[in-house]
C-alpha cells in the first residue's frame, strides 16, 4: 500500500452486490481525475466483480491485495471526469 499515494478510502464490506459496485462508483465520483482510492472489499463475488466493473468504467486498477481476513484492498486510480 505504501507504493501509492492514497487520496481516499472506502469500505464496501457492509453492502452486497450490486450495491458494492454502486458504493465504489459513488466514492470514485467524488474524486478528481488521477486521484487514487483504496477500497476495502469482501472475498467472493465482490472481489470478482467490483474490480472488473470499475475497469469497464475506464478506471485503472493498480493493485489488489488480500488482508488475510477474507477482505481485500483494491487500489484504483480514477480516470476521467
Amino acid at each position: 500500500m505504501a507504493d501509492f499515494q492514497i487520496d481516499a478510502e472506502a469500505d464496501i464490506t457492509d453492502v452486497v452486490c450490486p450495491v458494492t459496485f454502486v458504493k465504489a462508483k459513488v466514492a470514485l465520483e467524488e474524486l478528481e481525475d488521477g486521484q487514487i482510492i483504496s477500497i476495502r472489499i469482501n472475498d467472493g463475488e465482490p472481489v470478482q466483480n467490483v474490480p472488473r466493473s470499475l475497469k469497464e468504467e475506464g478506471h485503472q486498477i493498480l493493485k489488489l491485495s488480500a488482508n488475510g481476513d477474507e477482505t481485500y484492498n483494491l487500489i484504483v486510480r480514477k480516470v476521467g471526469e
Partner: peptide, 15 residues
C-alpha cells in the same frame, strides 16, 4: 444506494 442502485450503475444516470 441500494434503492437507486440500478439507476446509479447506468453511466447515463450515475450519482
Amino acid at each position: 444506494l441500494e434503492r437507486y442502485s440500478r439507476h446509479i450503475i447506468l453511466s447515463e444516470v450515475g450519482v
